[in-house]
Simulated scan of single mutants.
Amino acid sequence: MEDALEKIEAIRNKEIHHRIKNNLQVISSLLGLQVEKFNNRECIKNSEILEAFKERQDRVMSIVLIHEELHKGEERDTLNFSPYLEKLVENLLQTYRLGNVDISLNLDLEENVSFDMDTAVPLGMVVNELVSNSLKYAFLGRNKGIIQIRLFSEETGQNFNDSKRELPVRDTMYTLIVSDNGVSIPQKINFENPGTLGLQLVSVLVDQLDGKIELTRNKGTEFKIGFNVSRVNKNLCF
């Protein structure tokens, strides 16, 4: 009976992810139709309005891909993040076709890294914003460029998740680095006064992860994000 109930719950969760994905795709399609409509108006065609709609479409698609991967995967509540990240950035490269600019994408991602929705959604949106920013601004006037994404972890030890010290929890510190070798972000831009909606959103999302972000300008731009993930260590439960 327990096995049967577990299978029913797994099917129900997959159906939920499938429906959420479909609903988000409808929203993305509506935004795409609006972009096409604006493209037919010369007064709007090259304006910030059109760019804003495209950016919102990308943000929606970053969440669509999460529910798509969860629907396909075996895990009910966690996402294998590295394959998702690969798919996300490949979609962004196709979206921002930069004429004759040759953009190389270097991915160095730890395998079998799984996050729940509370981590996967904001982290996916952070990557979406940072990679989009590089594709739009870092290589202006250049004929080639490199975008690199690294994701790795370091186990920080054991603690307990309540005052009774009954459930051992494993803490893991993750580091995400998104960098490019293009034109560095201007010195006047920082996270205290980002000046753009994209960087404001990145700052809010990193706070949501209880993480920290560092910006380095050295022959390009590098964003380094550190955040902690705690999981119950079943091997130590008693």
Rank of each mutant, 00 (worst) to 15 (best):
R231E: 11
I66R: 00
R41I: 11
N22E: 15
E110M: 04
I27Y: 10
N228G: 04
D116S: 01
L65P: 04
E68P: 02
V169I: 12
L215E: 05
F81I: 04
S62H: 01
E154W: 03
V206Q: 05
D118L: 05
F223L: 03
S82D: 14
L205H: 03
G157H: 11
K7I: 08
F115W: 07
D162R: 05
N133S: 13
D116K: 06
R165L: 15
H18N: 14
C43H: 10
N13M: 13
N23S: 14
L109S: 06
K212E: 14
V229H: 02
G32F: 05
L176M: 12
L236Q: 09
E51C: 07
R231D: 07
K164L: 04
L88A: 10
S134Y: 13
F115E: 06
E166P: 04
L70T: 13
Q94G: 06
K37G: 14
N218S: 10
Q158K: 14
I146D: 15
Q94E: 09
G198A: 15
L93C: 13
E9C: 03
N22D: 13
G195M: 01
K21M: 13
I103N: 12
L109C: 01
L151Q: 04
E222H: 01
S29G: 14
V60H: 03
D207W: 01
R59L: 14
E51T: 14
P122M: 11
G195Y: 03
M173R: 10
N159H: 13
N22I: 09
H17C: 14
R150W: 06
